[in-house]
C-alpha cells in the first residue's frame, strides 16, 4: 500500500476501530457483570444462591379435602382420617421420598402435649412405607431447643426410627435462603431447605395448642419449624409470618391432632392440667381450613386468629371449612 492510501483511509479506519473498541468494552463489561459476585466465597454450599420451595400439594378432590375423626387414639384416628380422604395412595406414590414434619420444637416429655404424639408420627411413617411404598421417609424439624435433646425427650426420635424413618437433624449447611414472592417478611431468609430438597411429598403433623403470642399453634404454625436464622424476630408480626408460611409451604397433607388439646399456657404448657381431651383428629389438604376447624376446639373463632383470614385472602386456603364438605366419622 502506498503512503497516500494510508492517509486517505483515516475516517473509515477510525470508525471501524471505534466500533471495535466499543464492542470490546461491551464484551468486557458483560463478562464482568455475568461473573460478578459481591459476596466472598463460602465454605459450604453457596448460601447466596436462593432456592425455591417446591409445591408439594396434590390435586383437589371434591368432598375429599378434609376429614374429622372422633376417637381416643390418635394413631387409629389418623388411619381412618387418611382412608376417608382417598387413602395414603392418593398422597404417596411408590418410590416417593416423603418428608414428615412433626412439632419437635421443645425438649418436652410427650405427656405434656407440647410436641407431636410420637405414636402418631410412627403410625404415619409406617403407613407411608408399608402401604404407600415410599422409598424413604424422613422425619425432621428445626427445633427451638437443642435438636438432640428435643428428638430424644419428646420421644419422636425413638418412635420414628423404630418405625423405619430416617431422622434428619438440622445443621448450618442445611439452610438456604429463599424469598416468598409478594412476601414482606420472608425475603432472602434462610429456610431448612435440606429437609425438602429431595422430597416428593411433605406431610405436617401438629398438636393442637394454645399459644401465648399467636392465639393458637396448629398446622400452619407448625411450618415455623422450617425457618432458619434468628426467626424469633418474626414474633413481632406473628400473624403475617404465619400467613406467609402458609403461602410458602404447600404440603401434601396436614394432620392436626386434637386428641389431647393444650388448652392453656401454650406453647410450652408444662402441666398436664393444661391439657384437655377433645378426642378429635383432623386431616386435610388445606391447612387454613384444618386450622379454622381446629380453632373451635380451643373455643376460638376465626376472627380470633387473624392469620387465618390473612392466609385465606392470599390464596393459601379457605377459612370456610364447611364449604369443603368435611367428612365426619368416629373410631372407637
Amino acid at each position: 500500500m502506498t503512503k497516500k492510501d494510508k492517509i486517505k483511509l483515516p475516517r473509515r479506519q477510525f470508525l471501524a476501530r471505534t466500533v471495535k473498541a466499543g464492542l470490546s468494552i461491551v464484551a468486557a463489561s458483560a463478562l464482568a457483570k455475568l461473573m460478578y459476585n459481591s459476596k466472598p466465597p463460602s465454605v459450604a454450599a453457596d448460601i447466596s444462591e436462593m432456592v425455591k420451595v417446591p409445591d408439594f400439594s396434590v390435586a383437589a378432590r371434591a368432598s375429599q379435602q378434609i376429614s374429622i375423626i372422633k376417637g381416643p387414639d390418635p394413631a387409629q384416628s389418623s388411619l381412618k382420617a387418611i382412608d376417608l380422604l382417598g387413602g395414603i395412595e392418593r398422597f404417596v406414590k411408590p418410590g416417593d421420598i416423603v418428608v414428615i414434619k412433626p412439632n419437635v420444637a421443645f425438649a418436652s416429655p410427650p405427656a405434656l402435649g407440647a410436641t407431636t404424639n410420637p405414636a402418631l408420627v410412627a403410625q404415619i411413617v409406617r403407613l407411608c412405607l408399608d402401604r404407600g411404598k415410599a422409598k424413604k421417609v424422613i422425619v425432621t424439624d428445626n427445633p427451638i431447643n437443642n435438636p438432640e435433646s428435643c428428638f430424644l425427650i419428646s420421644g419422636i426420635g425413638k418412635a420414628a426410627s423404630a418405625a423405619g424413618a430416617e431422622l434428619l437433624l438440622p445443621r448450618p449447611a442445611y439452610f438456604r435462603n429463599t424469598s416468598l414472592q409478594g412476601g414482606k417478611l420472608i425475603n432472602d431468609w434462610p429456610i431448612y431447605f435440606e429437609a425438602m430438597r429431595k422430597a416428593d411429598r411433605l406431610i405436617g403433623i401438629a398438636p393442637l395448642k394454645d399459644h401465648h403470642r399467636s392465639g393458637a399453634s396448629m398446622t400452619m404454625k407448625n411450618f415455623y419449624g422450617l425457618l432458619g436464622g434468628r426467626r424469633n424476630i418474626f414474633h413481632q408480626n406473628i400473624n403475617t409470618i404465619i400467613a406467609e408460611l402458609a403461602m410458602l409451604f404447600r404440603p401434601t397433607l396436614v394432620i392436626l391432632d386434637g386428641t389431647t388439646v393444650m388448652k392453656t399456657n401454650g406453647p410450652t404448657g408444662g402441666s398436664t392440667s393444661d391439657l384437655k381431651r377433645a378426642d378429635t383428629l383432623i386431616a386435610g389438604t388445606d391447612p387454613v381450613a384444618v386450622d379454622s376447624f381446629g380453632a373451635t376446639l380451643l373455643d376460638l373463632k376465626t376472627s380470633d386468629l387473624p392469620y387465618l383470614s390473612l392466609a385465606a385472602e392470599a390464596g393459601a386456603g379457605s377459612t370456610d371449612y364447611m364449604l369443603l364438605k368435611p367428612i365426619f366419622a368416629s373410631v372407637s
Partner: peptide
Amino acid sequence: LYEKINGKAPL
C-alpha cells in the same frame, strides 16, 4: 429466653 420457652417469653 425465647430459645427455651418460645412464645411464652414475652410474659
